[in-house]
Amino acid sequence: MRKYHRWLSVIFGVFLLWISITGVISQIPMWGEMFGGEGDADRPVAAAPAVPAGFTCPESMVCRPKPSGSRSWVGVVHHLHSGETFGPLGTVIATLSGLALVFFSFSGLWLYIQMWRNRKDRALKPGWFWK
């Protein structure tokens, strides 16, 4: 298990770092709303831009003005975070990275439990943490 944990961490480490950084960046606009600042929800919606004569919104779609301010950045960061910016391959890598994160969680816990049991079996000082 330790071998797989080590090899997958080398392969997916960079992707997981990318996903974690873009995930944190995508939450920055929400921090202002949480800590009493003016959020985008409080701002008035800009008037819709002029549409060409004769244009009607298709029934299967909802037509709205493009988001502005921090909301537009959230959309860009979301596409980077999910891998959509890099096409189908980016989405596959993002999905595999998420699955790798689940694997690292379980295998890391499993390795810790094995080390803890091994330490207990060797009659060393018991405890949750050691040097």
Rank of each mutant, 00 (worst) to 15 (best):
K131Q: 10
V77A: 05
S70M: 11
G90L: 05
G83D: 04
F129S: 08
M61A: 12
A48Q: 08
F86H: 05
A46V: 10
S60D: 15
W128F: 11
L16Q: 05
L99R: 05
W116T: 09
W31E: 04
E84I: 01
H81R: 06
F106L: 15
A46R: 14
L8W: 07
G98E: 02
V45K: 15
K3D: 13
A47N: 08
G98P: 11
I19A: 08
K3T: 10
V10E: 07
L96Q: 04
Y4N: 12
V14Y: 04
W31C: 02
E59T: 13
V62E: 15
F104N: 08
G75S: 06
L17H: 02
M115E: 15
E59M: 09
L17C: 08
D40K: 01
F12W: 09
S97Q: 02
F104C: 10
Q114C: 10
P52C: 00
P67S: 14
D42C: 00
S60P: 04
T95F: 13
V24T: 09
H81L: 07
R71Q: 15
G37I: 07
G32V: 00
L96W: 08
K120L: 12
L17Y: 03
H5D: 07
M34Y: 13
C57K: 03
E38N: 04
R64V: 11
I21K: 07
H5C: 03
S60N: 14
Y112R: 11
G23H: 07
S9Y: 01
S68D: 14
V45H: 09
L8D: 05
L109Y: 11
V45G: 03
Q114S: 13
M115T: 07
M1P: 15
S72W: 09
M30D: 15
W31I: 14
G83R: 01
R122L: 10
T22C: 04
D42N: 11
A41I: 10
A48S: 09
W73L: 15
R122Q: 12
F12D: 01
L17M: 14
A100C: 10
T56V: 12
W7I: 10
Q114G: 02
D40A: 07
F86A: 13
L8I: 07
